[in-house]
């Protein structure tokens, strides 16, 4: 059963000189329900753009995006939010700093429903928030009424993670969600990720910089380079993959790029 399907999706930007740059080049991709897919790639390879297109914060120039067979290409980001949870790299982006921890979670508990004039927090919801936070054993349940801004980056990312998965979404997008954290906090968020994912079927796409994470997590691995998918491995091949091999593959792509650059430089010197 296919959860997410991309059909020939393209997206280009104009760089500072007005030259169009292909951020995502005709990507076609099919992801099975319940799959855990890892995407790696260098800076500017189009990973984040791809997630933005799936989440709806950017519109593709061409192609279709289907979620559980339904075409969501023209659906606004907030309309897709009922089915798609997302955690950003920037811990400040997923939560509202001026609102308290419980107020942030109360909003997430309303995902996919109308924001009406009922009180956001009642006894029942407060109890559930307390319970879910307490189960993480990092003391966040003591800080329900404190503004988000008083929490550390790691703690904020934990809350964002909880918000994104409060009602288990059809699709969870993790966009380098541990990259901005110190090792200890990254470990904390990562173990929480593992715990939440182990609780049941959820289709997950996780973008990461870390080859170690890429090898340890997920059952399918995609490598992106210059807006294209250059490697797509799963099953035993994915299981056997070693960080060293991935690094090597990565290095090859990078060297090719250097070659491109140096050739361009050579041509420039010769002809211009």
């Amino acid at each position: 059963m296919t959860a997410l399907e991309l059909q020939d999706v393209c997206k280009s930007y104009h760089n500072a000189n007005g030259v169009p740059m292909q951020a995502v080049c005709s990507i076609s991709l099919s992801i099975q329900r319940g799959a855990f897919v890892i995407i790696v790639g260098s800076n500017g390879s189009g990973k984040t753009t791809l997630l933005n297109l799936i989440a709806g914060s950017e519109q593709p120039d061409g192609g279709r995006i289907l979620l559980d067979g339904k075409d969501i290409t023209d659906l606004a980001e907030h309309r897709r939010a009922a089915d798609i949870g997302r955690v950003f790299q920037d811990p400040f982006r997923g939560t509202v700093a001026g609102m308290s921890v419980e107020e942030n979670l109360a909003l997430a508990a309303r995902r996919g429903q109308r924001f009406d004039l009922g009180f956001a927090l009642d006894g029942k919801l407060r109890e559930e928030i307390h319970e879910r936070l307490a189960s993480l054993h990092i003391g966040l349940e003591q800080r329900l009424r404190q503004p988000m801004a008083t929490l550390s980056g790691g703690q904020r990312q934990v809350v964002t993670m909880l918000m994104a998965t409060w009602h288990r979404p059809r699709l969870l997008l993790l966009d380098e969600h541990t990259a901005a954290l110190d090792p200890q906090n990254a470990e904390l968020v990562l173990s929480l990720t593992g715990r939440i994912l182990s609780q049941g079927e959820m289709t997950v796409i996780m973008v990461t910089h870390s080859m170690k994470q890429a090898v340890h997590f997920g059952e399918r691995l995609l490598m992106m380079h210059r807006g294209r998918i250059t490697l797509d491995i799963s099953g035993t091949e994915k299981l056997r993959a070693q960080p060293v091999e991935l690094e090597k593959h990565f290095e090859e792509l990078r060297r090719e790029e250097l070659l491109d650059e140096s050739v361009a430089q050579l041509l420039r010197e010769q002809y211009i």
């Binding site: 914060s57 400040f92 609102m99």
Partner: peptide, 26 residues
Amino acid sequence: FFRTRFGLAMRAGGENPSAARTVGAN
């Protein structure tokens, strides 16, 4: 009013539009 779901969403939408959109607020 600012303790209702709508009021909270209003605050979220102003302060952090990106976070508000991810929880499904217009």
